[in-house]
Computed example of a mutant assay.
Amino acid sequence: MRIGFAGLGNMGGRIAACIVRAGHDVLGYDLRPEHVTAAGARPAGSVGEVAGHSDLVLLSLPDSRVVEAVVLGDDGVLAHARPGQIVVDLSTAAPDSTTRLHRLLAERGAAYLDAGISGGAAAAEKAALTLMVGGDAAVLDRARPALELFSAHIFHCGPSGAGHTAKLLNNFLNAIALSATAEVMVAGKKAGLDLETLLAVLNAGSGVNFATLHRFPKIIHGDYLKGGLTNTLMLKDVQLYVELVARLGVASPNSSGPLASFGLARALGYADEISNTVVDAIGDLSGGVRLHTGEEPAA
């Protein structure tokens, strides 16, 4: 199966590199050509070239607007789609956009899978991502050998759009855990608590979550685990979640917290920084607090 890739940024580049390390050729396109070569992929001149020369096309793009431009553009994926081809969208996208693209590609005989990913940059580098996939189960079976090159867990969530729906639900919980833990850690710092001890308490107690286990043990020492989701993208994901649950008729009283936190981070200049820097945005409004030594607030 010839593999093509469009969008080799923070996550796409790491995923493509996993495929290359496994011994497979990847034809890649990115607006920044250096991303393609850094991942070890063969550079393509356009999205159309990727789609025209690949049996499996992987997409890793910022949002539905960009996904639609890449798929529906004059020299996009749809223009080169053909029977038997599989397109896998690894982006975090709006499910209604996903189902529309699925229908359009199906008219050309091509299959479209929405495959939300979880695990962050660290899991991507280790080929240990979790995939939540929407679309035809038989198509997933055909694509699975390629997807297993960078994933440790693959879940078929249902028909088209189900994967991106599951991704939005997952990312909302991720956003709540990160923003709430950031607030707690700033409070702990200002209260004079030892942050290593505080994390040990949280991880042995009912406050344990992904952020306390995997993010803040690094952050308190100044390692923000750069390379993952930015504050702008995290805010976008939460907004997509709010739109989703509104259409479903589900009340969302808990969405105001992460909307405020990541909106604050974007407003204070952390828009394109990894979302873990939300703790610095909260610290800025709390007297210039930094969790880690070496960057303490001025007296």
Rank of each mutant, 00 (worst) to 15 (best):
V201R: 12
Q85P: 00
G23W: 04
L105A: 13
G48E: 04
I220P: 01
A265M: 13
L173P: 01
G116I: 09
S97V: 12
D25W: 13
G283M: 12
L291P: 03
R108K: 15
A138G: 00
R82D: 11
H35T: 11
P159L: 00
D141K: 04
I86M: 01
L129C: 09
P43E: 10
H80R: 10
L90R: 00
H164T: 05
D272I: 04
P258G: 07
N203H: 08
A128K: 08
A51H: 08
N254I: 05
L56V: 13
L198F: 11
R21P: 01
I219W: 09
A115F: 07
L169F: 14
L244R: 10
L131N: 12
V279H: 06
G28R: 05
Y29C: 09
L235P: 00
E34G: 07
V139G: 00
L61D: 00
L113V: 02
A138Y: 00
L244F: 06
T37A: 15
L56Y: 06
L285W: 02
E34W: 15
G158I: 07
P145H: 07
N203Y: 07
I176G: 00
V50G: 10
L105G: 11
Y29M: 09
A191E: 03
S64M: 03
E125Y: 02
V70K: 07
A281D: 05
L198R: 11
M1G: 13
F262M: 14
D63G: 03
D280P: 01
A51C: 09
A146Q: 02
L178K: 06
E107T: 13
G109I: 04
A260P: 01
A127Y: 11
G222F: 15
V36W: 01
K126R: 14
S91F: 04
P43F: 13
A175C: 11
Y29Q: 08
D74T: 09
H214Y: 10
V186P: 02
M1S: 11
P217M: 15
N171C: 02
L105K: 14
L202V: 04
K167I: 11
F172I: 02
S286D: 15
L78K: 02
P62E: 08
E49R: 05
K167R: 04
G161F: 04
A175R: 04
F172L: 07
H156N: 03
G7Y: 04
L213I: 02
K189E: 01
Y224M: 12
A299W: 11
K218S: 11
A175G: 07
V57H: 00
E196R: 15
R144P: 06
V67A: 01
G134C: 10
L235V: 05
L72M: 12
D74W: 04
E243Y: 01
D30A: 07
V88I: 15
A6P: 00
